[in-house]
């Protein structure tokens, strides 16, 4: 056994409890693996790559997990690490997490994002297409804007632009759902609703959009927000729960004022 002080030369020895599940029907279970000599300079996903190489050498099935860009911009990676979505750090996706955050001899539990709306497909891979369906319900601007116009043709107040950009940082990873004790998707939907509600391009469909997106969110089986704000703490992009409040008032307002389709005639 190497002591904590000389991990630099020998690397980290870890005990991993990894969630293994053959398919969506399987009930799944934790399996225990030990890994030796993991460099503290490698990322969490590189550590899993090494685990998979080891499993392949032993003739066993590698662990399936989602990843793509590995630089915190695509929203593919997930994982709940020791009970925390995207691991222990703030504003850090799992792919940006370093093994130096762990110590030699540490035991690490690795689970998929858990929610009814995110069914596990295999091991740590979940189906997060519920988010795509919420976007398809209204998270876009349907007017054809043609070719890019002059930058200053459409004046946007600085504050609105800043807030919209903050909301638009959402990469749709689903950590908000994973970290929420109620498995609610309010931070994701709040960010998407806010981002368009704050900009002039989003105005024509503003009311219809929030009603349709919230309806789809509820249909997907996400939980109800309890204002616990763990989503904000887990979000790799630091999206503020202010976006949830904005969605709440957009929804309340739209519920009161949206006109049924084809009824927008006015007069008596």
């Amino acid at each position: 056994m190497s002591g904590g002080h000389d991990t630099h030369s020998h690397g980290l020895n870890l005990t991993l409890h990894v969630w293994r599940q053959k398919n969506a029907q399987d009930t799944g279970h934790f399996e225990t693996y030990s890994l030796q000599g993991i460099s503290e300079h490698c990322s969490f996903l590189e550590m899993l790559d090494q685990l998979n190489e080891q499993l392949l050498r032993e003739g066993r099935e590698p662990v399936a997990f989602d990843h793509d860009c590995r630089e915190g911009i695509c929203g593919s990676c997930s994982l709940v690490i020791n009970g925390r979505a995207h691991g222990p750090d703030r504003e850090t996706a799992t792919c940006q997490l370093h093994m130096r955050r762990f110590h030699d001899g540490e035991t690490i539990y690795i689970e998929p994002f858990r929610a009814k709306a995110f069914p596990v497909q295999r091991d740590l891979v979940t189906d997060r297409s519920a988010f795509d369906r919420i976007i398809a319900a209204g998270g876009f601007v349907s007017a054809n804007t043609g070719s890019p116009q002059d930058a200053n043709a459409l004046p946007i107040p600085k504050e609105a632009a800043d807030l919209a950009m903050d909301a638009a940082q959402c990469i749709g990873c689903g950590a908000c759902v994973a970290a929420c004790p109620n498995a609610a998707a309010m931070l994701f939907v709040g960010a998407k609703v806010s981002h368009l509600a704050l900009l002039p391009q989003g105005q024509p469909e503003r009311r219809k959009r929030v009603l349709a997106m919230v309806e789809q969110m509820d249909k997907e089986g996400f939980g109800n927000c309890g204002n616990i704000y763990e989503c904000e703490a887990a979000c790799p992009k630091g999206i503020s729960v202010e976006n949830i409040a904005r969605m709440n008032r957009e929804y309340l307002c739209a519920s009161l004022t949206a006109r049924p389709q084809g009824e927008a005639k006015g007069g008596f």
Binding site: G28, R84, I228, Y229, E232
Partner: peptide
């Protein structure tokens, strides 16, 4: 119902 399979232990991320 929204989380039929529970986590081993959902740890705090810092706002609860």
């Amino acid at each position: 119902e929204a989380r039929p399979v529970r986590y081993k232990d959902l740890a705090p991320k810092g706002r609860r």
